[in-house]
């Protein structure tokens, strides 16, 4: 009996990985160029921004929450950081402030959800609009450029480290740290506990409100980090940056097998989920699927994955 449940959960865990391999095999068969080193690096770099956000989203979803405001958080932190850099503030200082702003915006979400007892969907739908609106107000609807030539800032989006794009290195390091936090720390355990059974967690003396505020704050911080990478790559901050990013992040988490009801899932799955989305984006281009049709395929793959997942758990 026990063995069976273990096997089941094991299968559930590796299913996204099998899916990824399958997609790679199909795409490579249709266009062997996919597997070239330069293309793979390209894919990874494209994935890194979504992956960073999706890692944070994993924490939020594990507590049973959701955050629709990450795209807007990314835009606002990017704009404010770029604004500071354009006005001559020390770029490193500006970037740190940008990260802090991201964490604060996330904490605001967490606070509204935990203390105000507002459903996460509604709370972050509202802050999404507010954050996006603030971005437009701050930028007056225009991109911010002229960000100077700080090497650190330029490296963040465009540099290479040992031949690997810096955004990919950032993603890998973040993944390692977050994996460790979820797996080995009391905080990680409490994230699972709150999502698994909030009432039992509170009755065990866990401060569930605090955990929630922390996870939204962490997601805000990661969105801000993603915004720095994006701003560096584009050498400017766009007021419309990050639109629909929240949905790609949620899709990556769900593809990775994390339950939207909270308590179950793992961050490795999210990384694979983000890779599936990235590989699809890249591969569909390579094999010449018309760009309008690509969206249909992407949506269908997500739907298929979730349907299969439901079947297994039912």
């Amino acid at each position: 009996m026990q063995l069976k449940t273990n096997n089941q959960s094991m299968l559930q865990k590796i299913a996204p990985f099998i899916g990824l391999i399958l997609i790679i095999v199909i795409i490579t068969a249709l266009n062997p160029g996919f597997l070239s080193v330069s293309n793979l690096m390209n894919v990874l770099r494209q994935v890194s921004i979504n992956a960073l956000i999706a890692f944070g989203m994993t924490f939020v979803i594990l507590t049973g929450g959701i955050d629709l405001s990450v795209g807007a958080t990314l835009a606002l932190t990017g704009a404010v950081t770029a604004g500071m850099m354009a006005s001559g503030i020390d770029p490193i200082f500006a970037m740190l402030l940008g990260l802090l702003l991201g964490a604060v915006l996330g904490a605001i979400n967490g606070f509204i959800i935990a203390k105000g007892k507002v459903a996460p969907f509604i709370a972050t739908l509202a802050t999404m609009t507010i954050y996006r609106g603030l971005t437009l107000v701050y930028t007056d609807g225009r991109p911010i450029s002229g960000l100077g030539d700080s090497l650190t800032f330029q490296m963040l989006g465009k540099g290479y480290f040992l031949g690997i794009p810096v955004p990919v290195v950032t993603m890998i390091i973040s993944f390692g740290v977050l994996y460790f936090i979820l797996k080995k720390t009391t905080f990680g355990r409490r994230v699972y506990a709150v999502g698994g059974n909030e009432e039992a967690s509170i009755l065990s003396g866990i401060n569930a409100d605090r955990i929630k505020i922390y996870v939204y704050s962490l997601l805000g911080l990661l969105a801000a980090l993603a915004s720095l990478i994006l701003t560096s790559r584009l050498n400017s901050a766009q007021p419309t940056a990050g639109e629909m990013f929240e949905l790609d992040a949620i899709a990556a988490v769900v593809l990775g097998g994390t339950s939207l009801t909270g308590g179950r899932g793992w961050i490795v799955g999210t990384l694979i989920g983000a890779l599936i989305i990235g590989v699809l984006n890249n591969g569909l281009n390579l094999i010449g699927v018309p760009s309008f049709f690509q969206q249909v395929v992407k949506g269908a793959v997500i739907l298929l994955a979730v349907l299969l997942d439901r079947k297994k758990t039912a």
């Binding site: 506990a193 698994g196 059974n197």
Partner: peptide, 13 residues
């Protein structure tokens, strides 16, 4: 079940 345990957690957890 609703207040005492996280049923998806292991016994140890």
């Amino acid at each position: 079940k609703s207040e005492g345990l996280v049923v998806d957690f292991s016994v140890e957890e």
